[in-house]
Design a protein around this nucleic acid. Structure first.
Length: 473
RNA sequence: GGCGUCGUGGCCAAGUGGUAAGGCAAGGGUCUGCAAAACCCUCAUCACGGGUUCGAAUCCCGUCGACGCCUCCA
């Protein structure tokens, strides 16, 4: 039984979908006004892993991730750069989609944008006004009336009274209550604007997600996700809007990922302590980013340090070591020495394969416990390597390796071996062959020179009893 | 100040009542001409102080500390 931690109840709950076999999942995407950073990547990775596991468990997943493509910051940035705000936003959307692909994140089934959902947004605002949950202000803004919503604050576990006490919000005559928030913002001169019953303007931030949910997934959804910095006010307001509009419970499970920490603080655009995804991928493989996420708990803060990244990288190497054998990609085989492994080694391998499979499912079923799942995977890695060392043939290793491939695949790891050009491969093979002859003559300084120089060129050589294997590294 | 999450070995991190998974690093060993890789061995009593219990990292209370939200934010 899959169990999921629900922010709304602060408990792990049994996972039951509204429609059998189908999961409707909405994840808040970025506001596209600047380069995305690795914190955005973390969020996307977390929910990619959730999705992959749900699909592995046999669910069909409708996965929607939006782009907020009109808001104050986009407009400000575009004005500052002297470009069209829509062009700016679309450029960043394009970049983001490329990043997702680089990180092996599956494309969502739909990527709605605020600017393309305008009629739905307006219809929803109209509906809310009609039901008394919202009111137009004198200046053309439309606000949500929080006092009308009995359980406002339930997601973030705070009460209206408490918030008011600490609020530093100008009360302004426009709002009835300081916590009332904008559904529609009247346009100022020079701002992009749409016609509406309340005059020229654009949607507030929260309403777009409610409208997109309704349009893409319906009145009720299974999973609503995003970073935990969105719990308040964004998701709180979404619930308020959606439930006031439909009169039905909105999302069954609210899932929130923890924040990436850089230097002990949350990585964010406003603090400026960020590493962009582009910068990251210049130095490390996308698998490394995924691995560091998998190693931790998705709900906890994640310390983003070079040390942790190095550890993730080494761990990946270890998993790859178990996947290699005579036919591995990029690995030139040593002569297979397989003489059949002892029976007890093979039965241990078969047993571990089954255990790992079980551990994987048990762990992932427990609120996507990826580090527990990884532990099981590493146990199998060890057993595969042990069996190989004991002389197992490729055929004997194959089932265990297939399981490794499958499970790491569910986690979204690519585990690709590096490759060079096939032209280069031929010359390297020749060089390795020559070095083999040199070694037969025990000309160690020369053979070591070849090994060292190849290493510098990104080719790793490993000698064994059966010959020499090499691969790009 | 209010609300929330959390505090496990050098680092990252599982584990929510029965005597601490896994990864990285480190030390020792096997293999190797040497190396690399792999494999084997070693390495914690769970922030602190009380309490409940036959028994607690795991439940309760308190203290200290960290982080997040309360304003845009994945």
């Amino acid at each position: 039984m899959l169990r999921v931690y629900n922010t709304l109840t602060r408990k792990k709950e049994n996972f039951e979908t509204i429609e059998p076999g189908l999961v409707k999942m909405y994840v808040c995407g970025p506001t596209v006004y600047s380069d995305a950073h690795v914190g955005h990547a973390m969020s996307a990775l977390v929910f990619d892993i959730v999705r992959r596991y749900l699909e592995y468990r046999g669910y069909k997943v409708k996965h929607v991730m939006n782009f907020t493509d009109v808001d104050d910051k986009i407009i400000a940035r575009a004005n500052q750069m002297g470009v069209d705000p829509f062009a700016l936003a679309n450029g960043y959307i394009h970049d983001f989609e490329e990043h997702l692909s680089d990180l092996n994140i599956m494309p969502a089934t739909a990527n709605p944008q605020a600017t393309r959902t305008m009629d739905k947004i307006q219809a929803m605002i109209q509906g809310l006004i009609g039901k008394g949950y919202a009111y137009p202000a004198a200046n053309g803004d439309v606000y949500f009336r929080v006092t009308r919503d009995d359980d406002y604050g339930k997601l973030s576990a705070r009460k209206l009274d408490d918030m008011q006490a600490g609020a530093r919000i100008e009360v302004g005559e426009l709002k009835e209550h300081p916590m009332d928030f904008a559904l529609w913002k009247a346009a100022k001169p020079g701002e992009p604007a749409w016609d509406s019953p309340w005059g020229q303007g654009r949607p507030g931030w929260h309403i777009e997600c409610s409208a997109m949910n309704l349009h893409e997934l319906g009145e009720q959804i299974d999973i609503h996700g995003g970073g935990n910095d969105l719990i308040f006010p964004h998701h709180e307001n979404e619930i308020a809007q959606s439930e006031s509009f439909t009169g039905k419970p909105f999302a069954r499970y609210w899932m929130h990922n923890g924040m990436l920490q850089l230097g002990g603080e949350k990585m964010s655009k406003s603090l400026g302590n960020l590493i962009t995804i582009t910068e990251f991928l210049e130095k490390r493989d996308g698998d490394v980013m995924r691995m560091i996420v998998l190693n931790g708990n998705y709900r906890s803060p994640l310390a983003f340090t070079d040390e942790a990244l190095d550890a993730a990288e080494r761990g990946l190497e270890r998993i790859k070591s178990a996947l290699r054998h005579s036919s591995g990609q990029g690995l030139q085989p040593a002569a297979p020495s397989a003489k059949n492994a002892p029976a007890d080694v093979l039965s241990a391998l078969a047993a571990q394969t089954e255990t790992t499979q079980q551990t994987f499912t048990d762990s992932m079923d427990d609120d996507f416990n990826t580090s527990g799942a990884l532990a099981g995977i590493f146990d199998l890695v060890r057993q595969v390597n042990t069996a190989r060392d004991a002389g197992a043939t490729a055929g004997q290793l194959a089932p265990a390796q297939a399981t490794l491939r499958e499970l790491t695949g569910v986690l979204g790891l690519r585990l690709a071996e590096k490759t060079g050009s096939s032209d280069a491969d031929k010359f390297i093979a020749l060089l390795v062959e020559v070095r083999g002859e040199v070694r037969k003559q025990k000309l160690w300084p020369l053979s070591d020179l070849i090994r060292d120089r190849l290493k510098e060129l990104g080719v790793t050589i490993e000698d064994s009893k059966d010959g020499t294997a090499w691969r790009w590294s």
